[in-house]
Structure formats: C-alpha cells, structure tokens
Computed example of a mutant assay.
Amino acid sequence: MPTFNQITTSEQLEAVIRESQEKPVLLFKHSTRCPISAGAYAQAQSYLKGSPNPDAAYALIHVVEDRPVSLEAADRLGVEHASPQAILLKEGRAVWNVSHSRITSSALQEALS
C-alpha cells in the first residue's frame, strides 16, 4: 500500500516537483490542529487503502510544523494556500486541486485514475 512521504524541506519539495515530470504526484497539505483537516486526511488514507494509482507518488506537508515549505509550495505551484488541500502535480505543475470537505476518497480516485 502506498503511503504519504512527509516533505519538510525546500529540497524535498523540489524533488517532488521533479518527480512529477515522470509520474503523477499527489501533494496533501495537512493541519494537525484542525478537525476538518483530520477528516480530509482520513479520506486520503481511505483512498490509499482502497485502490490507489500504483504509478503515482504521494507526499504530505504539515502546514503548521513546516509552514515555510507549505507557503513555498503554494508559491511555486501557483495554488492559493488552503488547509487541508490536495494538489495533483504532473509535469512539474499543479493540474488539479481541492480543499476542505471536497477532499474525498472518490474525488482522489477520480483525479488519479
């Protein structure tokens, strides 16, 4: 089963963006202090436990603990910061994103199929 690889540095963020040149990358921005984010994270975990895209990579940024990287991701990808937020990267750029209650296992399944 795929898991989220936590991103804590600019270098790791850069590596994830580069990786999206080769395969889709789902970047999940999560607040460990927010119940809405906890629900969205549970939906993302449900997606990973179901039938996730085996050819994709999965990355996680904790928006409070790693705020500089979270803000850098928003800036680099041209996606307004939200938390929770799911961003799909392909070919080095954001091609899809949702936030808050729109993050569901089925939405992730559809976006990554």
Rank of each mutant, 00 (worst) to 15 (best):
M1H: 05
P2K: 15
T3K: 03
N5W: 14
Q6V: 13
I7G: 03
I7D: 00
I7L: 07
S10H: 00
E11A: 12
V16E: 15
R18T: 15
R18Y: 11
S20W: 12
Q21I: 15
Q21S: 12
K23N: 03
P24D: 01
P24Q: 00
L26I: 01
F28S: 01
H30Q: 04
H30E: 02
T32K: 10
R33S: 09
R33G: 01
R33W: 01
I36V: 13
S37N: 13
S37V: 06
S37Q: 02
A38E: 07
G39W: 01
G39R: 07
A40D: 07
Y41P: 06
A42M: 06
Q43R: 06
Q45W: 03
S46H: 04
L48Q: 09
L48P: 02
G50F: 04
N53D: 05
P54N: 15
P54D: 15
D55N: 12
A56V: 14
A56W: 01
A56G: 08
A57H: 06
Y58A: 07
A59F: 04
A59N: 13
L60T: 07
L60I: 13
V63I: 09
V64W: 12
D66R: 13
R67N: 04
P68A: 05
V69T: 14
L71V: 13
L71R: 14
E72M: 04
A73Y: 01
A74K: 11
D75F: 13
R76E: 09
G78H: 10
V79F: 01
H81F: 06
S83I: 02
A86Q: 07
L88D: 04
E91A: 11
R93S: 07
A94D: 02
A94N: 05
N97M: 08
S99N: 15
H100D: 11
R102M: 12
I103L: 13
I103A: 14
S105E: 13
S106K: 02
S106M: 00
A107W: 05
L108W: 10
Q109N: 07
L112H: 09
S113I: 10
